[in-house]
Amino acid sequence: MNISTNNLRKNYLKEVALDDLSLQLEGNKIIGLLGKNGAGKTTFMRMLAGHFQQSSGTLKVNGQNSFNNYEITKDICFVMESDNFNEKFSIKDVLAISAEFYPNWDHEYAEKLIELFQLKKKQKVKNLSKGMYSALGIITGLASHAPLTIFDEPYIGLDASYRSLFYDLLLESYQQQPRMIILSTHLIDEVSKLFEEVVILQKGRLMLHETSDDIARKHLVLTGSSEEVDKIIQNKQVIYESTMLGQKVAVLFDEEITDVGSLKVSRASLQELFVYLTKEEVKSYA
């Protein structure tokens, strides 16, 4: 699987949802797609899935544009937060339609998943609780075996236990049939360990695309006395700093530092880094 965008742009009337996005993704990997609300994640995923055309720029999935192109969309399963299924259908109908659409659909596996998530096939979509609805989306995504499977916040209403089950199933399914899985989420702490690569969008643009290893390696959290920290972080790319009780914490990104003196060096979690990289300053109104 191979995704390539160049100067990709999408406007909704005057709103710019994606602005000059150039991004290359390839191989069988689990990729985390992160960004604040309104960063353009869902727009990007919907365009990958061929839901609508771009305003300008290029978008290629395995060399072709996915819009109105079954050759490509049969290989893409996109599970959204909501609006995945027609309310009139029963779970059985949903599975039958999915089986028609996705050439690699695994019927037995879908049946097994229905049991695991304790759904009943006769139930109508409109009568499902939020959690059960999400479970049905997850089941579709996993059983599709689509070479590109995209999950956009697939677990609204699912409790921690079922979310953990989803992570187990995702890993198992990925190991049995490696494919490209894009997972967009706000629950970064829960899933960051699953990611091989991470993409962060900010205001419709690409902010960061790195392997998880590189993100961990490329940042430093320095702690020590204010003077010492200030000396070292001069002219460096500081993404976060704060001082309390004479102790200063500074987070550097993409900087090589050989000598930190007596400062303590540690690492931040992906979720913390995400917040440091994307947070707006709170302006005081006092």
Partner: peptide
């Protein structure tokens, strides 16, 4: 690597490393 990945809920590439 698969067993480790599953047990710790981590990416198999990480376990392999």
């Amino acid at each position: 690597t698969n067993e480790l990945a599953k047990y710790y809920q981590i990416n198999p590439a990480t376990a392999a490393k």
